[in-house]
């Protein structure tokens, strides 16, 4: 592990109008670490995830990815985003492109790879997430689980340094959650740096190095999963765990 954290957030604040969504966020994610962000809805965890590739700009503070501060809007920001993979709750596959085209668009247009190379690498990725046979279909023709796996492949095609997951299984039917989590666990085991906003406690226990618990825009706890789940320090975390673990 190097000294430079892959993600570093320092004194980050953000408002949506009057709503203070992120309050003095300080967070470091070391290379190769898997950090799961938990918290009740409205706690700011998705916003936190989206600030890291500047899909949401911040009001104050600094965010660095691999030691480089986030640039302002423009070519430099696009370059940084290419190195930061993102997986969305609602998949957001390009609706007018086939699955293979979804996976090759970035490598061809951003990385300037040849179409042939991009397709070869893309097919290998589709193989890895188990949907090679869907390559020529359009996103709407796939199940939610298949779409999300394709979205993960699309992000991986950019060979990112870090992957952000914004509630990747929240829009899925229950029987499709596992297939997506399996892909994510494999990725974590391979040493990918990941920041995962999720409600999947099983994933947090199995794959996370750390759990970050957020409430009301603040990071309230930051602990290893076992410690967080068995002996949370704050009442808010106890309350949250009580609600989700008893259902």
């Amino acid at each position: 592990m190097t000294d430079t954290p892959m993600i570093r957030m320092a004194s980050v604040d953000k408002h949506f109008g009057d709503l203070h969504v992120l309050r003095d966020i300080n967070l470091e994610v070391a290379a190769g670490q898997v950090v799961v962000v938990l918290g009740p809805s409205g706690s700011g965890k998705s916003t936190l995830c989206r600030t890291i590739n500047r899909l949401e700009p911040i009001d104050s503070g600094t965010i660095e990815v691999d030691g480089k501060a986030l640039p302002a809007e423009g070519k430099a920001l696009a370059g940084l985003r290419a190195d930061v993979g993102m997986v969305f709750q609602s998949f957001n596959l390009f609706a007018h492109k086939t699955i293979l085209e979804n996976v090759t668009l970035g490598p061809v247009k951003v990385r300037r790879n040849s179409k042939g190379d991009a397709e070869k690498a893309g097919l290998a990725l589709l193989e890895r997430v188990g949907i090679t046979n869907q390559r020529d279909k359009y996103p709407a023709q796939l199940s939610g689980g298949q779409q999300q796996r394709a979205a993960i492949a699309r992000a991986l095609a950019m060979k990112p340094k870090v992957m952000l997951f914004d509630e990747p299984t929240s829009a899925l039917d229950p029987e499709m959650v596992q297939e997506v989590l399996d892909v994510m666990v494999t990725l974590a085991k391979e040493g990918m740096t990941m920041l995962v906003v999720t409600h999947e406690m099983g994933f947090a226990r199995r794959a996370a190095n750390r759990v970050v618990f957020m409430a009301d825009g603040e990071i309230v706890e930051d602990a290893v999963p076992e410690e967080f789940f068995t002996s949370p320090r704050t009442d808010r975390a106890k309350d949250f765990l009580g609600k989700i673990l008893t259902h």
């Binding site: 590739n53 985003r81 609602s90 247009k109 699309r154």
Partner: peptide, 25 residues
């Protein structure tokens, strides 16, 4: 908006996002 966000997230510039993803749809 998710379509444009996904396009920006893989590093497409504003022009590419518009030309490759948003305008065709």
């Amino acid at each position: 908006t998710g379509q444009a966000e996904a396009a920006r997230a893989i590093g497409l510039t504003f022009g590419q996002t518009l030309g490759e993803v948003v305008l065709p749809q």
